[in-house]
Computed example of a mutant assay.
Amino acid sequence: MAQVENVTTAKPKIDGAIYSAPKGTTLPTDAKTALDPAFKPLGYISEDGLTNSNSPKSDGIKAWGGDTVATVQTEKENTYSYTLIESLNINVLKEAYGDDNVTGTLKTGITVKANSKELLEHPVVIDMTLRNGVYQRIVIEFGKVSEIGDISYTDSDAVGYEITLTALPNTNGDTALIYIVDPNAETNPGGGE
């Protein structure tokens, strides 16, 4: 039976939505446990929010005469796209240019090296709040910044880094784990909710 209560929108949690950590950081295994302190917030993202592309691509096998008689999945890339708009946030700069290419602080001066060093895969967590305060957490163990859009410097828009993050598979073949929980739900002592 269709239920209106299952329809939702998504908003970033109050303290941010996207967190990045060095490879090997302990990953969360639910939607509400506090993150390991190694996860650093990447601040505000643009009003366009987050887009997840996770559609398989297939090739059709044709029989003599032109009928498609089978399809074979050729790939299933899982990507997340978003624009980081806190361009003065040192963590954002490290996400876009790489940890080794960003040094300093705003107070002492930041140096960013733009070069062709390949960005390394690392854990990324995306936290959001759904309808009625339900938490959703996307945990990507091996996220790799695979594309950065053009950076525009204008007086009418925030300087932003349009990121495409490719989620690479872990040892189980999972590109991401998605956890959802209602933190306000009362647990029934009999085991049901």
Rank of each mutant, 00 (worst) to 15 (best):
P28G: 12
T29L: 02
D30K: 09
A31T: 05
K32Y: 05
T33E: 00
A34M: 09
A34Q: 11
L35A: 09
F39C: 04
K40S: 12
P41R: 04
P41L: 04
L42F: 07
Y44G: 07
Y44M: 09
I45P: 01
I45C: 02
I45D: 10
D48H: 08
D48E: 15
G49S: 10
S53Q: 13
S53A: 12
N54V: 01
S55I: 01
S55L: 02
S55T: 15
S55P: 01
K57D: 07
D59C: 07
D59I: 14
K62Y: 14
A63Y: 07
W64D: 10
D67V: 09
D67T: 11
T68G: 00
T68R: 13
A70W: 00
A70C: 02
T71V: 03
V72P: 01
Q73K: 13
T74Q: 11
E75D: 07
E75N: 05
K76A: 11
T79R: 03
T79N: 09
T79Y: 05
Y80T: 10
Y80N: 04
Y80I: 15
Y80Q: 08
Y82G: 03
E86I: 04
S87F: 15
V92K: 08
L93V: 03
E95W: 00
E95C: 10
A96M: 08
A96L: 05
A96C: 06
Y97V: 00
D100E: 15
N101L: 00
N101A: 04
T105V: 07
L106Q: 10
T108F: 05
T111N: 09
A114N: 06
N115I: 03
S116L: 10
S116W: 06
K117I: 00
E118P: 01
E118V: 13
L119A: 05
E121W: 13
H122A: 15
V124R: 03
V125I: 11
V125S: 04
V125C: 06
V125M: 03
I126D: 10
I126E: 10
M128W: 02
T129I: 14
L130I: 05
R131Q: 13
R131V: 07
N132T: 11
N132S: 14
G133H: 08
Y135H: 15
Q136D: 09
R137G: 06
R137Y: 03
I138V: 12
I138N: 11
V139H: 12
V139W: 08
I140Q: 08
E141S: 05
E141A: 08
F142R: 15
G143S: 11
G143V: 13
G143A: 15
K144V: 14
V145P: 01
S146H: 02
E147N: 14
D150S: 13
I151S: 02
